[in-house]
Amino acid sequence: MDMGFAGRRALITGASQGIGEGLARSFASEGCDLSLVARSAEKLEALAGELRSAHGVKVDVLSLDMTKAGAIGDIIAFAGHADILVNNAGAIPTGTLWEVDEDAWRSGWELKVFGYINLTRAMYAEMKARGRGVILNNIGNGAQNFDFNYIAGTTGNAALMAFTCALGGRSLEDGIRVVGVNPGPVATERIARVLKGHAVRLLGDEARSGELLARYPLGRAATAAEIADLFVYLASSRSNYTTGTIITVDGGITSKRSVA
C-alpha cells in the first residue's frame, strides 16, 4: 500500500529511543524524510546514519532539551517546514499524590504536556500558512484508565486528550489534521522499569516483574513497530478524514473493564 510519503517530511520529538525510535524507523521505511529531535546527539546521529543507509531518505537531527528557554523557536527554525509533527518527547513520573512532589510533577508536565502544547501552537501556525499538515500526539492509555499510582501521568494524559480533540475538532478548516494515539504498555526500557517498580510494590520483588508482564494481552507488551505503524497510517493520505479523535491501541486493556 502506497502511503504517499514521497517528498514529505516528519518532525519527531523524543526520537532517539523507545517509541520515538520506532516512529523514525516506520516513517523512513515508507520513504518519508525525517527531522529528529532528542537530547542525545550520539543516539540521534547513529539512528540517522542507519536510516539514510537503509532507506535512502533525508534525515536531519537536532539535539536539545525541549524544556529550555527558546527550544521551541530552535525546533521551528530547524524543521518548521515539516509536513507532519509527531509529539512524542517526555515521560511523566509514576507515583501517588504524595510520592510525586510539586517539582517532579511540574518537570514531567513541562516536557510532555506543555512541550506538546507549545510545539503544536508553533507548528500549527506554520502549517496553517501552507494550508496543510498533520499533528499526531503520542499520549498513552493512562488517560483513560485513571491510576492512583500514576496520578501525575494519568492527569496529564487526560489533559492532552482534551487538547487534541478540542484542536482537531476545527483544524480541518485550516487544512490540518490533529489526532491522538493512546498506546498501552510498549516493550521499551521504560516499561521494564515501571514493571519492576510495580513488582516491588505488589509482589515484594522486582525480579517477579515477568509475572506482571504475563498478565498483558497475548502475554506481552506491544512492540514499538506495532504502535509506530499506526502513526504512519494516520499521517498518510489514506487517513485524510481522521481528526479530532483519539485511537487507543492497548490489546483491549481499556475495554476490558467489567462489573462482574
Rank of each mutant, 00 (worst) to 15 (best):
A71Y: 01
Y116A: 14
G140D: 00
V100R: 09
N118E: 15
A91I: 14
T96G: 11
E126V: 08
G140T: 04
Q144Y: 12
L111H: 11
T67F: 01
A48T: 04
V59I: 03
L119P: 02
M66W: 02
E102S: 15
W98G: 10
N149V: 04
A89T: 10
L62S: 03
L97W: 11
I151R: 00
E126T: 06
F146V: 09
A69H: 08
A79R: 05
G140S: 05
G131A: 00
N149A: 14
G115F: 05
T94V: 09
A104V: 12
A152Y: 00
D60K: 12
G142R: 13
G49P: 06
Q144C: 08
K58Y: 00
A89I: 13
L111T: 11
T67H: 01
D147N: 14
P93E: 14
N137H: 08
E110N: 13
I139Y: 02
D60Q: 08
S107F: 06
R132F: 11
A152M: 00
E102H: 10
G142W: 05
N88H: 07
E102A: 13
K112R: 12
G153H: 02
A125S: 14
D83T: 08
A152I: 03
R106G: 09
M66F: 03
G90C: 10
A89R: 06
L97G: 09
N138E: 00
R130H: 02
A104G: 09
E110V: 08
N137I: 02
N88K: 07
G115Y: 02
I117N: 08
M123W: 04
I72L: 02
A48F: 11
L64S: 01
G70I: 06
L136M: 03
R106Q: 10
E99L: 08
L64P: 01
T154N: 06
T67I: 15
I117Q: 12
L136Y: 03
A79S: 12
L47A: 08
T154R: 02
A46N: 06
G115D: 10
A129R: 15
F148N: 12
L97D: 12
H55M: 03
G153E: 03
N145A: 10
I92V: 12
I117A: 15
E50M: 07
L136T: 01
E45K: 09
T94S: 12
G142M: 14
A152N: 00
A48E: 07
D101V: 13
E110Y: 07
K112G: 08
W98H: 11
T94R: 14
V61I: 10
N138I: 08
F114P: 11
I84H: 08
D60M: 00
I92A: 05
A152K: 00
A69Q: 13
I117R: 10
T94E: 09
T154K: 02
E45L: 06
D65T: 06
V57D: 04
L85F: 08
R130Y: 01
I117D: 01
